[in-house]
């Protein structure tokens, strides 16, 4: 920076500018917040309304039917045969949680391999990862099902969890992240200190990549939580103690006659709660914890 604006002389105007700017930003953010929240608010409000209120139109004012709707979900045989929110949440947590952990760890590891080391197949490997990322997935269902049938893995969590180890897009993200902000010198330093490669990765690199890990953990968790398509393919028999939250919600939504919309919305509402909680917990890492891991010079 050759142009030097002295901090002291301009202090007053500068402060004012900051305040003005902050106010403008603040207004814009509030507007965005409203746009983001209104539809979700409607969804939540609907969970507190009765069936007849819902079919008569949208409202922004909560009513007192939530308990009633919960009761319907619990007692009406149309719902309670398959809608067990606690079991669904447990199953979804197992799948989304393990996927999230595996995908972040192994993607980090793969990216680390691609960035830190030089080897003959490095570029081909990266190009391969990029290429498979670009293949549309709609057509792969038949092949995937045949594979699972041959491996006898239908109605198993394995094909829902293990493939998370190989997530091309996340590897790509981690690689780009490391390229932009990972100081390779630190690895040299660790080597000199006698640290072996895996320990370097585990104890030095992972903490430094915390923001990337946290971001991808959130994305992975939420996308796996909501991954109705694959879950319904693999858990083909829909066993009540095995199915996941989105599968249950989908069954609720699919009740096309005699449905109680209040109960339907309550089911959707219940399915969102854990995701929001997890998101808020994990987002702390992005919001607050970055500086802790970074390289201080």
């Amino acid at each position: 920076m050759s142009k030097k604006i002295t901090y002291d002389s301009d202090k007053g105007g500068y402060q004012n500018k900051v305040i003005m700017k902050s106010a403008a930003i603040y207004a814009a953010l509030i507007l965005l917040t409203l746009i983001c929240l209104v539809p979700i608010w409607i969804l939540i409000v609907n969970a507190t309304r009765s069936h007849n209120e819902i079919i008569s139109g949208i409202s922004l004012i909560p009513k007192g039917y939530l308990a009633e709707n919960m009761k319907t979900l619990k007692e009406n045989s149309l719902y309670n045969k398959f809608f067990h929110p606690l079991i669904g949440m447990r199953n979804s947590l197992i799948i989304a949680g393990l996927c999230c952990g595996l995908t972040v760890f192994f993607s980090g590891m793969t990216a680390y391999g691609l960035v830190v080391y030089d080897f003959k197949l490095k570029d081909p490997a990266f190009v391969f990862i990029l290429a498979v990322m670009m293949v549309p997935t709609q057509v792969t269902a038949v092949g995937f099902m045949k594979l699972l049938i041959n491996m006898n893995l239908l109605d198993s969590y394995i094909p829902l969890i293990v493939p998370a180890i190989a997530a091309p897009a996340i590897v790509f993200f981690m690689r780009q992240y490391m390229l932009s902000s990972f100081p390779l010198d630190i690895i040299e330093a660790a080597r000199i200190d006698g640290s072996n490669e895996f320990r370097t990765f585990l104890t030095i690199s992972i903490p430094m990549m915390k923001p990337a890990f946290a971001v991808q953990a959130i994305f992975a968790f939420i996308s796996k939580w909501n991954d109705y398509y694959n879950q319904s393919l693999v858990l083909v028999s829909g066993k009540p103690n095995q199915i996941t939250m989105p599968m249950m919600v989908q069954k609720v939504i699919a009740i096309d006659r005699n449905a109680d919309y209040g109960a339907n919305y309550t089911a959707i509402f219940l399915s969102i709660i854990p995701v929001v909680v997890i998101y808020i917990i994990l987002s702390r890492f992005i919001i607050g914890g970055v500086a802790a891991g970074g390289v201080k010079e």
């Binding site: 398959f82 099902m145 049938i149 239908l154 319904s232 393919l233 083909v236 028999s237 829909g238 066993k239 009540p240 599968m247 989908q250 069954k251 939504i253 699919a254 096309d256």
Partner: peptide, 18 residues
């Protein structure tokens, strides 16, 4: 009874896999 898929359209394909 076993719930296969959550709609008729889904069951149509899921039966074959099942």
């Amino acid at each position: 009874y076993v719930n296969v898929g959550s709609s008729g359209g889904e069951a149509r394909e899921q039966y074959a896999n099942y």
